Amino acid sequence: MTEHQPENQRFILEQDGYTCVLDYTLQGNRINFTHTYVPFRLRGKGLAEILVRDALAWADQQGLKKEASCWYVANILNE
């Protein structure tokens, strides 16, 4: 399950003792997703997509304008 850590400006997803991370910056009503990281052992399981989609849903609920410096998030935004 994705956990939002607003004090660290990130979303995390923990599995099998490892942590996947999606970092962001917030400026006014704009959120910029800056970095996605999934540990090597967890790659290929769709965890980054879960993390990103949960974060994008949260941003929508907050009425934020979404931007992405991270190529992975940008690909999902452009679907």
Rank of each mutant, 00 (worst) to 15 (best):
R41G: 00
V38W: 11
L51V: 09
W71R: 04
E67I: 05
L13M: 10
T2F: 07
Y24N: 02
N32G: 05
D60M: 00
L26G: 02
H35F: 09
Y37W: 09
L51H: 08
G17D: 10
Q15Y: 05
P39Y: 06
N78R: 15
Q62F: 02
Y72D: 12
F33C: 05
R30M: 12
T2V: 15
L51K: 03
V21G: 04
A68G: 06
T25M: 08
D54A: 10
L22P: 03
R30P: 06
A74P: 06
A59Q: 01
A48G: 10
E3Y: 07
N29L: 06
S69N: 05
E7F: 08
R10N: 08
V73T: 11
G28Q: 11
P39I: 03
L64H: 08
G63I: 08
V21W: 07
Y18H: 14
I50C: 07
K45F: 10
S69L: 06
L51D: 05
G28S: 11
R30L: 12
T25R: 07
W71M: 04
L42V: 13
P39Q: 00
D16L: 06
D23L: 10
G17K: 03
C70F: 05
A74R: 14
G17M: 11
K45V: 03
L26F: 05
F11S: 07
A48L: 05
A59I: 03
T19H: 03
V52P: 07
Y24D: 03
G17T: 09
T36D: 08
H35N: 15
T2E: 04
L22D: 02
Y72L: 14
Q61W: 03
D54V: 01
N8P: 05
L42F: 14
L51E: 11
G63K: 04
I50E: 14
N75D: 13
R41W: 07
K45R: 14
G44D: 14
R43A: 10
L42I: 12
C20P: 04
L47I: 13
Q15D: 08
F11A: 02
N78G: 09
Q62E: 09
G44V: 13
E79Y: 04
L42G: 11
E7M: 08
F33R: 00
L47N: 05
F40D: 12
T34H: 07
T25E: 12
I76P: 04
R53K: 15
A68N: 06
L22I: 07
T2K: 00
K65G: 02
Q5V: 15
I12M: 06
K66A: 00
